[in-house]
């Protein structure tokens, strides 16, 4: 489903974020990206939803070439990719319902369908009772659930997450991981960059370690592998 071929990314300031990365991630996989801060995990994530394009090499998702893709095609790619962030990126002046519905409204979905799908998705992430609350009235875990709901409401084939549990306490982090696990079981491919050792060790999923912009380790059912 995802294929990176000889991908290098050098930022305009000269920073070499990725060096000659080759990767294949199959449909329905759950993949952890681990590695020290600044190793290139976030850059790799950004390549997947085409926030960045590689300096060299090719990125393909579902046999679509993201490097050759025209700017105006990007929105349609993103409708099939959900993105979750450490800082949630919710709109503070919109309710939970509105934040989630927003993802459908702005791609022109009909009003009635927006309502039905938003309610169904809020139910799925366990936030139906909080639909009229504003983000500042929610706990961190609840805010992240809103973010997850917004990311999956379009039934994307791929969900990418950049340290989704980074701002959460361990218990709440586990709740979110269970949610992601469920989503993955429904067939969505998940790529998650993380520093959460306990989570990576316990989940026993594929682990790709990035160090100095290179793939240092890639193992099925791997562990976090770095000392605390």
């Amino acid at each position: 489903m995802i294929q990176l071929t000889n991908v290098s990314k050098i930022y305009p300031n000269g920073a070499r974020a990725l060096v000659d990365v080759n990767l294949k991630i199959g449909k329905g996989n759950f993949v952890f990206l681990v590695g020290p801060s600044g190793a290139g995990k976030s850059t790799l994530i950004k390549l997947l939803y085409r926030e960045e394009t590689p300096t060299r090499g090719q990125v393909q998702i579902n046999s679509k070439n993201l490097v050759r893709m025209k700017d105006r095609e990007v929105p349609y790619l993103r409708r099939n990719i959900g993105v979750i962030f450490q800082d949630f990126k919710l709109l503070p002046n919109k309710t939970v319902f509105e934040n989630v519905a927003f993802a459908l409204e702005v791609i022109g979905v009909a009003k009635r369908e927006v309502r039905n799908r938003t309610l169904a998705t809020l139910e799925l992430v366990g936030l139906k009772a909080k639909e009229t609350a504003y983000p500042h009235e929610l706990s961190g875990g609840e805010q992240q659930r809103v973010c997850v709901a917004r990311a999956i409401i379009n039934n994307p084939a791929l969900l990418v997450a950049d340290e989704p549990t980074g701002n959460l306490d361990p218990d709440t982090a586990w709740d979110i991981m269970e949610l992601l696990y469920d989503i993955n079981k429904r067939g969505t491919t998940i790529v998650m960059a993380t520093h959460a050792r306990a989570i990576v060790n316990k989940m026993q999923k594929r682990v790709i370690a990035i160090e100095n912009g290179r793939v240092a380790r890639d193992e099925e059912k791997g562990g976090y592998g770095y000392d605390a």
């Binding site: 929105p75 993103r78 990126k89 709109l91 993802a103 702005v106 791609i107």
Partner: peptide
């Protein structure tokens, strides 16, 4: 800009934005 960032993220077309 936050709203625009999210709109881009969830695939709103440029013309819509």
């Amino acid at each position: 800009r936050r709203e625009i960032q999210i709109m881009k993220l969830v695939g709103a077309s440029n013309s819509f934005i």
